[in-house]
Design a binder for these strands. Structure first.
Length: 877
RNA sequence: GGGCGAGUAGCUCAGUUGGUUAGAGCGCUACGUUCACAUCGUAGAAGUCACAGGUUCGAGUCCUGUCUCGCCCACCA
C-alpha cells in the first residue's frame, strides 16, 4: 500500500480527530494493576471562570508530558482533572453580569442568586475544560470533579467538623483583612502587600488641662483617628515620662484618651508616640487587648465612615482622610506631612486597598498543621523541584498565623454551623443539615451565613477527588499521588495547605514531588495579563501552528523552574520542527518499498551484520533515549526537547537521511523512525500518533492500537557501536573541511571536485563513497606522495588534497591559510606554556595532561602542513 | 528590613561533580530551489562569560565583596 503525506503538515483536523478517538477509547483511564505502582497527578484545578492562558498551557503541558511518559512506561497512570468554584472570582463575574441589568445580588434572595451562579457555571464553566483537550491534555475525564459537586462538598463538611471537634477551628473577633469592594474578609495570603508612596502625617493631640500643650503622633491613615482609644509610648522613653498620667484629647472627636506604656512602640520612629486604634490596626489590636482598651469600629463594610465617625459619617475612607487632614490643618493641629514609602495590602481579586477590620470570623489553628507539614518536607516525604523552594516553604511554615476561613459572600460552601433560636443553646456543628436543636429541641435553626474560603475545598483536592471521606477503591489505589506541578504563586495558598490537609486527614503527605515551574512573561518581562493587553493566546497559537508546536516551543524555551519570556516568534521553533518531522516521514514513506517491511524489529543477529552508518544511527538513537530519560527524570524538559530535536533533525535528517542514498538497511530506517515517534510522543502527541498510524498501515505491522499506549523505548547497550560513532566523526570532519573549502572558493555547487587523501588510517579508506556523495566529488583517491594538488587540511592525521588545476582563487586561499596559521600559533603558544608549567604536570590528572600533549602534537602537525602549503602556493603564483 | 532568582553572541537561553579553542535556537552574511522540507540546505561572521578581588596547575563553573534587573516575604505607626 502506498501512503502519502500532504506536502505541509496541517494540524487542525488531525488534532481534533485523534483527541476524540483517544478519549472515546478510554486510553486516559488507568489500567489498575495491583502489582504496579501507579503514577498519579491531580490537576491544579483552574477556576470555572478561567479561560486557557499561557500559564495554563505551560502547566498542563508539563503534566501531560509526565503523564504520557509514565503511561507509555506501562504504569497505571491517572491524571485527575477538574475545576475550582473560585468563590470571590466567580461571584464577581456574575455580579458584573447582573450590574449590566442594573441589579445587585441584593435584588435576589440568596437561593435565587445562587441559582444564577449555577446557571452561569453550566453555561460557561466548561470552557477551560474544552480548551485543555485542545492542548492534548490526557486527563481521565471520567473522573472529572468540581469543588462544589456533591462529593467534594461532603469532604469539606467532614474536614470542618473534624477540625472543629479537635478544637482546631474557632470563631472569634480579630483584625482581619477586609476588602471594601468585595465586602468580605480575606486571608493574609489573599491580601498581598504592595509598596505604595503614601504620606506620613504628624498630628498634634492636646494634653488635657494644659492649655497650649500637646503631644505629636504620626500616622499614614489619619481617618482611623476617629477610632483612637489611647496613645502609646515606650516605657523606657524618658522624653514622655512626664505625660504618663495625663489624659489626651482626641481632636475632631473630643474623646478623652489615656497614655499607655507598651514595649511595642519604637521611640525612634516618628515622634515616638503612637495613636492606638484597636479596631483598625493589627498592632493596635494587640495593644488594645493587652491594655483592655475600647474597640471602636468606625468603618462600614463598604469602606465608608460609619455613624461613630460623627461629621464624617457616610464619607468614603479616602475622602474622609483628605477632609480630616484639611480640618486638622485649619485648626493648626497638622504639624507636617512627609512622603512615606510603605507596604499596603491589596485584595488579590479586585486589587482594592484592603482595610484591617475588626470583626467576628472563623479561623483554623495553623501551628499543629504547620508542624506536621514542615516535618513531611524535612523528612523528604515531599520534595520540591527545584530544591530552592524548600526554604521558602519552611520559612512560611515557621511564621504561620491562623487562617481566616470565613467569607461574607454567597457562592461557596456555607459554613456547617447552625444557631438555635434560643440564644443559650450552643452552636450546632454538623456533617448533615440538622432539623432540630439537640439541646432544646427547637426546630428554629439558622445556618451561619458565611461561606468558606475557596482554598478550604482546594486543600482537600488530592484526596477529595478520589472519594474521601468514603473509603473508595480509587482512594486506596491512587493516594498519595506522585507529582504536583504548579507555579510558585500558589505555594502558600495551595501546596502548603494540601500538605497540611494530607497529613491531618489522610496521615500521609499528598504527593512525593512538587515541580515548581516558572512564570510566563512577555518579551519585556511583564506578567501577561488581560488588563495589560499583552496576552499571547495559546488557542491562537494552536490555531496557527498546532498544539504540538505550542507544546514543544514552550518546553524548548523554558529552563527548569525559570521564567519564560514569550513573543509570537518563539513558536516558530515548534512549527518548524513539526514541519521537519512531517517532511522527513513523508520522504521515508515515498521511498520505501512498502511490501518488505512487515517486520522491522531488530534482532541481535541482524544488528551485527549492519553497515556502519546503520550502526551509527542506532548508537545515536540509544544515546538519545538515555539522555531523554535522564532529562525527564530530573524535570529538565528543555533538555529532553533539545536532545530529541538534535537527534531527529541533525543526526537523523541531516546525516542519516542524506546518506540513505547509499546502501542502508530500510529496517533500521523504520526502526529508528518508529522509536523516534515514541520518544517524541509525550511532547508532541498529535502528530506522532498520526504518523505512527500511517506507519502501521504501510508496514502492515501490528504495533498496537495507539502510540499513546506503545511501550516507551528502552536503551540497549548492544546497539551502541563505538567504532561506528568514531567513523561518523571522521566522515563529518572530512566533509566539513571540503564543504568549507568549496564555499571559500566559490566553487559552483553543481561542479564536482577531485579529492585525494594521504593517510595511514585504514578507516578513512572505507568512506570514499560517503565523501563522494556528501561533498559532490568526482573521485576520492587514497594515495601518498600527492604532487601538484592543493593541500586543503589535515583531519586526524589524514592529509586532504584537492586538484589545484581547477578554478581556485589563490589569493583567497592564501588568506585562509594565513588565518589558520595565526590561530594555530596563538593556540600553540598557550598550550606550550601550559605544558611547560611543572605544577600542571605534577598536579593535573594524567588524562588531562596526556590530552593536552596530544592536542599539542596534532596542532603542530597541522601547523606544519599549512606552512608547507604556504610555500607551495608561493611557487604556484 | 529579610529571602530567592537572573546577568554568557544582536535576541532568547544551555553550560549537571572546576579540565579541549565556551555551545544551541532565532537573527545576520554569502551561496543554493532537478533534491522530503525555503516552515529548507550548505558555509560563515559574531562572546572582556556584569564588575573587583581570592582559592587553584587550571575558574563561566568554587569563595568574598560590589553593581544592575526581576520576584517573594515582612504588623514600624
Amino acid at each position: 500500500m502506498k501512503i502519502e503525506l500532504d506536502k505541509t503538515y496541517n494540524p487542525r483536523e488531525i488534532e481534533t480527530k485523534w483527541y476524540e478517538h483517544w478519549e472515546k477509547s478510554g486510553y486516559f483511564s488507568p489500567k489498575v494493576n495491583a502489582a504496579k505502582k501507579p503514577f498519579v497527578i491531580v490537576i491544579p484545578p483552574p477556576n470555572v471562570t478561567g479561560i486557557l492562558h499561557m500559564g495554563h498551557a505551560l502547566n498542563n503541558t508539563i503534566q501531560d508530558i509526565l503523564i504520557r511518559w509514565h503511561r507509555m512506561r506501562q504504569e497505571p497512570t491517572l491524571w485527575v482533572p477538574g475545576t475550582d468554584h473560585a468563590g470571590i472570582a466567580t461571584q464577581n463575574v456574575v455580579e458584573k453580569k447582573l450590574a449590566k441589568q442594573n441589579k445587585t445580588r441584593h435584588d435576589f434572595s440568596r437561593e435565587e442568586f445562587l441559582s444564577e451562579v449555577w446557571k452561569w457555571k453550566e453555561e460557561h464553566g466548561s470552557t477551560i475544560v474544552r480548551q485543555l483537550r485542545r492542548l492534548g491534555a490526557s486527563c481521565d475525564w471520567t473522573r472529572e470533579r468540581f469543588t462544589m459537586d456533591e462529593g467534594l462538598s461532603k469532604a469539606v463538611r467532614e474536614a470542618f467538623v473534624r477540625l472543629y471537634e479537635k478544637d482546631m477551628i474557632y470563631q472569634g473577633y480579630r483584625i482581619i483583612n477586609w476588602c471594601p469592594r468585595c465586602h468580605t474578609a480575606l486571608s493574609d495570603e489573599e491580601a498581598p502587600h504592595k509598596e505604595l508612596e503614601g504620606m506620613l502625617y504628624y498630628i498634634k493631640y492636646p494634653v488635657k488641662g494644659k492649655t497650649g500643650e500637646h503631644i505629636t503622633v504620626a500616622t499614614t491613615r489619619p481617618e482611623t483617628m476617629l477610632g483612637d482609644t489611647a496613645v502609646a509610648v515606650n516605657p523606657k522613653d524618658e522624653r514622655y515620662h512626664a505625660i504618663h498620667h495625663h489624659k489626651i484629647i482626641l481632636p475632631l472627636v473630643d474623646r478623652e484618651l489615656s497614655v499607655i506604656q507598651d514595649e511595642f512602640v519604637d521611640p525612634d520612629f516618628g515622634s515616638g508616640i503612637v495613636k492606638v486604634t484597636p479596631a483598625h490596626d493589627p498592632n493596635d489590636f494587640e495593644m488594645g487587648q493587652r491594655h483592655k482598651l475600647e474597640f471602636i469600629n468606625v468603618l462600614n463594610p463598604d469602606g465608608t465612615i460609619n455613624e461613630k465617625g460623627g461629621a464624617y459619617a457616610g464619607m468614603d475612607r479616602f475622602k474622609a482622610r483628605k477632609q480630616i487632614v484639611e480640618d486638622l490643618e485649619a485648626q493648626g493641629l497638622l504639624v507636617k506631612k512627609v512622603s512615606h514609602l510603605h507596604a499596603v495590602g491589596h485584595c488579590y481579586r479586585c486589587h482594592t486597598v484592603i482595610e484591617p477590620y475588626y470583626s467576628k470570623q472563623w479561623f483554623v489553628k495553623m501551628r499543629p498543621l504547620a508542624d506536621m507539614a514542615a516535618k513531611a518536607v524535612r523528612e523528604q516525604k515531599v520534595n520540591f523541584v527545584p530544591d530552592r523552594w524548600t526554604k521558602v516553604y519552611l520559612n512560611w511554615m515557621d511564621n504561620i498565623r491562623d487562617w481566616c476561613i470565613s467569607r461574607q459572600i454567597w457562592w461557596g460552601h456555607q459554613i456547617p454551623v447552625w444557631y438555635c433560636d434560643n440564644k443559650n443553646c450552643k452552636p450546632i456543628v454538623s456533617r448533615e443539615n440538622p432539623t432540630k436543636c439537640p439541646a432544646c429541641g427547637s426546630a428554629k435553626l439558622k445556618q451561619d451565613e458565611d461561606v468558606l474560603d475557596t482554598w478550604f475545598s482546594s486543600w482537600l483536592w488530592p484526596f477529595s477527588t478520589l472519594g474521601w471521606p468514603e473509603k473508595t477503591p480509587d482512594l486506596k489505589c491512587f493516594y498519595p499521588t506522585s507529582d504536583l506541578v504548579t507555579a510558585s504563586e500558589i505555594i502558600f495558598f495551595w501546596v502548603a495547605r494540601m500538605i497540611m490537609a494530607g497529613c491531618e486527614f489522610m496521615g500521609a503527605a499528598p504527593f512525593n514531588t512538587v515541580n515548581i515551574h516558572g512564570t510566563i512573561r512577555t518579551e519585556t518581562g511583564q506578567k501577561m495579563s488581560k488588563s495589560l493587553g499583552n496576552i499571547i493566546d495559546p488557542l491562537d497559537v494552536i490555531d496557527h501552528v498546532g498544539a504540538d508546536a505550542l507544546r514543544f516551543s514552550l518546553m524548548m524555551i523554558t529552563g527548569a523552574g525559570q521564567d519564560a519570556f514569550l513573543s509570537p516568534e518563539k513558536f516558530e521553533i515548534g512549527r518548524n520542527f513539526t514541519n521537519k518531522i512531517w517532511n522527513a516521514c513523508r520522504f521515508v514513506f515515498m521511498n520505501m518499498k512498502t511490501e518488505s517491511f512487515d517486520n522491522f524489529e531488530l534482532t541481535a543477529e541482524k544488528i551485527k551484520n549492519l553497515g556502519w552508518v546503520d550502526q551509527w544511527i542506532l548508537s545515536e538513537l540509544n544515546r538519545s533515549i538515555d539522555e531523554t530519560n535522564r532529562a525527564l527524570e530530573t524535570y529538565r524538559f528543555n533538555d529532553a526537547c533539545g536532545t530529541l530535536y538534535h537527534f531527529f533533525w541533525h543526526d537523523f535528517c541531516d546525516w542519516y537521511v542524506e546518506l540513505s542514498k547509499q546502501k542502508l538497511s530500510e529496517k533500521v530506517f523504520l526502526h529508528v523512525l518508529e522509536k523516534s515517534l515514541r520518544l517524541l510522543h509525550p511532547l508532541m502527541p498529535f502528530q506522532t500518533e498520526e504518523i505512527w498510524q500511517k506507519l502501521k498501515l504501510i508496514t502492515k505491522k501490528d504495533l498496537g492500537e495507539t502510540i499513546s499506549l506503545a511501550e516507551w523505548p528502552v536503551s540497549n547497550k548492544s546497539q551502541v557501536f563505538d567504532a561506528a560513532v568514531k567513523k561518523a566523526e571522521l566522515l563529518k570532519d572530512v566533509v566539513f573541511l571540503l564543504r568549507n573549502f568549496r564555499a571559500e572558493n566559490d566553487i559552483d555547487p553543481k561542479k564536482g571536485i577531485h579529492v585525494a587523501i594521504d593517510s595511514q588510517d585504514a578507516l578513512i579508506k572505507e568512506l570514499s563513497s560517503e565523501i563522494k556523495l556528501l561533498v559532490r566529488a568526482e573521485e576520492v583517491a587514497f594515495k601518498s606522495g600527492v604532487k601538484g594538488w592543493l593541500k586543503v587540511g589535515v583531519v586526524k592525521g589524514a592529509v586532504v588534497y584537492v586538484d589545484a588545476s581547477k578554478d581556485i582563487d589563490i589569493a583567497k586561499r592564501k588568506k585562509a591559510i594565513e588565518d589558520n596559521v595565526k590561530k594555530l600559533e596563538g593556540y600553540l603558544k598557550a598550550l606550550d606554556a601550559k605544558l611547560a608549567n611543572d605544577d600542571f604536570k605534577k598536579r593535573a590528572p594524567k588524562e588531562v595532561y596526556d590530552g593536552e600533549l596530544a592536542k599539542q602534537q596534532e596542532s603542530l602537525q597541522k601547523l606544519n602542513h599549512f606552512k608547507d602549503e604556504q610555500k607551495a602556493l608561493e611557487t604556484l603564483s
